[in-house]
Design a protein around this nucleic acid. Structure first.
Lengths: 145, 145
DNA sequence: GTTATAAAAGATGTTTAACTCTTTTATTAT
DNA sequence: ATAATAAAAGAGTTAAACATCTTTTATAAC
């Protein structure tokens, strides 16, 4: 596994895809998203259901329904996705898994690890969900081959 | 889960403990290590067995036996532990889990993520297994409460 | 209002990581 | 030699992450 769980990777890819589609003014179905971001369709359904519950994405049922993200949502940081799926451990947890670890009572890696964590956190917090929409549309970054 | 797997967290803590003990000139048993780093004893046995196989730690069986690390081993980077347990994904993998992702065909997070990955990698590569021995002995950093 | 569409919800199944148990092998001390 | 100690090795179990299936509910078009 990478830094994030597989579930979280699917989530980030899906949200970027929905963001791009919303920019283009269309709603997208689970089926379409799953094909594009190469994730198992029923599992992605569950993930999107959760993201919808916490308000990170919106959806409507029925014909011509699907998922979308409103303009306000596009401004939210991708940290929100990671937090919703993987929890806060990655933003705050000790690198060696020690629950007591702190500035006062540091583990050996505490100070070095803090730098890495901070860089990761600030990157996730300053990067917005809609930030890559134009690059995705023109193809200078991609979500699939 | 944090950045590393739980197994890897146990491994790093155990190796630091063995390193410290080796510095003090004594071998340590699985039982002692497991108590100190708060890991399940039989599971830790398996982990240490693997680390022993790849040569990161040494052991002798029988009375007064146990685990230790030779002076050369103390110079190795903790990246070796992470690599042995969690694999290279964390050093090289795409943040969004895309296997094709590269400089030429980047995912949206590629460039930002590279910085985080590089910082983490260089930290793990420049930090040695024996580096904290003195701080551990004098107690300015700790492996347990 | 009936039909088609698409997500929500809930129950269930599978796979992998985490963890345990038992037996074997090596070493040391007597 | 034999008894005690401690890791190695292999098989087995449990729990969590990953994934699927079925039913229900909401919406839209006719």
């Amino acid at each position: 596994m990478g830094i994030f769980s597989k579930t979280c990777e699917y989530a980030v890819r899906a949200v970027f895809y929905i963001a791009q589609s919303s920019q283009e003014g269309r709603k997208v179905s689970i089926k379409e998203i799953a094909e594009k971001v190469k994730s198992p369709e029923p599992f992605l359904g569950k993930i999107l259901q959760n993201l919808s519950k916490v308000g990170l994405i919106q959806s409507t049922k029925g014909p011509h329904g699907g998922f979308f993200i409103d303009p306000e949502g596009l401004k939210k940081p991708i940290a929100d996705i990671v937090l919703a799926i993987d929890g806060e451990q990655i933003f705050t947890g000790c690198g060696m898994g020690l629950d007591y670890c702190s500035e006062k009572n540091p583990c050996p890696l505490h100070h070095d690890f803090k730098k890495v964590r901070n860089q990761l956190s600030s990157m996730l917090k300053k990067t917005s969900i809609g930030q890559f929409n134009l690059q995705l549309i023109k193809g200078s970054v991609t979500l699939y081959k």
